[in-house]
């Protein structure tokens, strides 16, 4: 009964405030928490100019963002969405079904995923194949998959330190984990002949093999909060953590990044595309909302300006790895011309 009453009260309230939802003069952005620090920084700068209201940026995760973004056209639906991966074909189809036809894709820059440890720890230099052996649930051995037998790094390679395998990383709900699996585990899996054969015969089993992270204590799911991992690494020099580059950048006095495939996770190495574990970040915009919601075009122009996403722009200060000059120019032209996305 109380619920019914509440609904009735809510209905009354809506009648009282009818029309409030109709007119919207503020850009609304949803999506990935990885892109959130950059999109919010641009939103703040954009709001400071005083011509438009500061956009509202929600942190919903990439998948959740696309769900909201693709739900329809009109002031009730967000105008832009952040994504830490490119839009999927299925998502474009959902969008199309709901009338969201023309989507403008904007590549923002890159984000490195780092393996880091306390400065008190020994410096580490691993290959992706070694990381696979350390973290996969099942590893290839003698022609078949066996439950991961490794408990110390030097069991994988005598050159690695003689310390327990203990890696703190994001849970499966995180986009960072998805990217880590795609960029490290999947690539490494193909370097093992057993798994390569498996890929040819049974694609699903192959996917399961590289996407399953060990659950016997070698990999600790440390939650979505990267600051927590930073604190834990500081307290425990034997542990390694997996998180976004900006957290390493901000805590460079406490942490050191491990080299992956011989490349250290530095700003320059990621920007030059030498560091293997980096992913592009995207923002998607609805073309149909341009002209309906004030400021979208101007917001995109601010995002693509050199003072924002350039080599020395304020987004680089926030930890974004900018694209090379030519690529930036190309994307800026594409975005400011509101060129709609075409799926192959």
């Amino acid at each position: 009964m109380s619920k019914k009453l509440a609904v009735a009260a809510a209905a009354l309230a809506t009648v009282a405030f009818a029309g409030a939802a109709q007119a919207r003069d503020q850009i609304r952005i949803v999506g990935s928490s990885t892109v959130y620090p950059f999109t919010t920084a641009v939103a703040e700068q954009f709001g400071k100019t005083g011509k438009f209201k500061t956009p509202v940026v929600e942190s919903t995760g990439t998948g959740g963002g696309f769900k909201l973004f693709c739900a329809g056209i009109g002031p009730d639906h967000p105008d832009l969405t952040n994504a830490s991966r490119a839009i999927k074909k299925s998502e474009v189809e959902t969008c199309g079904k709901n009338g969201v036809a023309d989507i403008v894709e904007m590549k923002v820059g890159y984000d490195g995923i780092v393996l880091a440890a306390s400065k008190k720890a020994k410096h580490m230099d691993v290959t992706r194949a070694q990381l696979f052996l350390a973290l996969a649930k099942e590893v290839p051995q003698g022609g078949k998959l066996v439950p991961n037998p490794y408990t110390a790094w030097n069991q994988i390679d005598p050159k690695l330190p003689a310390q327990k395998i203990e890696v703190l990383g994001p849970p499966p709900t995180s986009g960072t984990r998805d990217a880590f699996i795609e960029l490290v585990m999947e690539v490494a899996a193909e370097s093992f002949p057993e798994l390569k054969d498996l890929k040819k015969t049974d694609e699903k089993a192959f996917k399961k093999a590289y996407a399953s992270i060990r659950e016997d204590g070698g990999y600790v799911e440390a939650g979505e909060n990267d600051n927590l991992i930073v604190q834990k690494l500081d307290a425990n020099p034997n542990a390694f953590g997996i998180f976004g580059y900006s957290f390493l950048d901000q805590n460079a006095d406490k942490l050191q990044g491990s080299m992956v495939d011989g490349v250290a996770p530095t700003f320059d190495a990621i920007a030059a595309g030498k560091y293997p574990v980096s992913r592009p970040l995207f923002v998607y915009a609805k073309k149909a909302h341009v002209g309906q919601i004030p400021g979208i075009k101007e917001y995109l122009a601010e995002y693509t300006s050199e003072k924002a996403w350039g080599k020395t722009g304020y987004l680089a200060d926030k930890g974004l790895i900018p694209m090379p000059d030519a690529e930036r120019k190309e994307w800026a032209a594409r975005v400011n011309g509101l060129e709609a996305l075409k799926m192959q």
Binding site: S2, A10, T14, F17, A20
Partner: peptide, 20 residues
Amino acid sequence: LGMPRSAPLVGGLVLALICL
């Protein structure tokens, strides 16, 4: 009911349900 997103009005109503 088509109320605005992110508004304290809606937040207050949801919290009222939790309080009841």
